Simulated scan of single mutants.
Amino acid sequence: MKVTRGALMLWLCAASLPAAAEGNVLAQSNFDGDSEGWTALGSGGSPSWAIHSGVSVQYQSGGGNPGGHITVQDPDNEWSYFSAPLAFLGNQSAAYGGRLSFDSRLVSAPGGTPANEAEVVLRGAGLTLVREATASLSATWTSFDIPLMPGSWRVDDTFSGALATDAQLQSVLGALSALWINAEYITPVVETVALDNVRLLAPVPEPRQAVLMSAGLCLLVWAARRTRFPGASGHDRRERAAIAG
């Protein structure tokens, strides 16, 4: 069966709709070659979030979800956190309404008592916003999907802080100076926590917007072909298209 250039263009036009329905990736780390600039730290946690110590990040070339990943071994009684590199920081206003996703797992924990603190800490514009997502972590890879929208973020204190307003969340994302992901789930033992597939995503376009974008592209394709063969009948246009193709 012969496929004309016009038919191919129309197929590409129709295929554009699913792509339009995905949010843009603003920053990501898959750790397939190295630690990609991620570091770690020890903090006193809520409500001051003071940084008390540096923590070593170890790169692991295999065992990720899939491929490589990074790990942190808890060195003390502080709260340990993975700390994002510059690619995730700065003006991330486009992430408002989007989400932060990542995979994590508990590699080892010889006894101890479960401990609970914020999964994600965002700092910027003189504010600290925190988001709690789980009280424990499995030994198998667990995927987290954290919405970057008001309603679940708190100011300073993970469990009793005031809910962050729309304006506060936008301010922090617009001048993001720190993004931390939890690496502490057991106390007082020295546990090891793994991290993989971190992505900062813009919001997904509304279905109406996606349809309009795709329809606009289809209209442009149709108009271009009409301009190329003005005044011709459908049969003549198909013949000429086949010759031109």
Rank of each mutant, 00 (worst) to 15 (best):
G37Y: 12
F82D: 01
G98T: 11
G44F: 05
Y59D: 06
H52W: 13
S80R: 07
G45R: 08
S93Q: 14
A87E: 08
N116M: 07
P75I: 13
S48K: 11
G97A: 08
Q60T: 00
A40L: 02
V57E: 04
S56W: 00
S43V: 02
H69T: 06
Q60N: 11
F82S: 01
A95E: 03
P110H: 12
G64S: 06
P114Y: 15
W79H: 10
G44V: 10
L106C: 11
V57Q: 04
A87F: 00
G37I: 11
D76A: 14
A50K: 10
P85I: 03
A50D: 14
G68C: 05
S43W: 01
G64E: 05
V72D: 05
P47E: 10
A50N: 13
Y81I: 04
G63M: 07
T113D: 12
G90F: 02
G90R: 03
G54Y: 03
H52Q: 13
D76G: 09
W38L: 04
G67C: 03
G42M: 09
G44E: 14
S104R: 14
V72A: 08
S83P: 00
D103I: 03
G37S: 10
T113L: 12
R99Q: 15
I51C: 01
A115S: 14
Q58W: 00
R105I: 04
I70W: 05
Q73E: 14
Q58V: 11
N65L: 10
G97Y: 12
L106T: 10
N91Q: 09
S108K: 14
L41E: 07
G44S: 12
D74N: 13
G45L: 08
T113K: 11
I70P: 03
A94F: 07
S56L: 04
Y81H: 08
T113A: 12
A95D: 07
G44H: 04
A115W: 11
Y59E: 03
L41S: 09
N77V: 06
G64I: 08
S43R: 02
H69W: 07
A84T: 01
G67R: 13
V57T: 07
L100I: 09
P75C: 11
Y96W: 12
A50W: 09
W38P: 02
N77K: 07
G63R: 09
W79I: 13
T39F: 02
Q58G: 06
V55L: 01
F88M: 06
I51M: 04
W49T: 08
A109S: 15
T39K: 05
T71R: 01
Q73T: 15
F82Y: 08
R99A: 14
Q92I: 04
G62T: 15
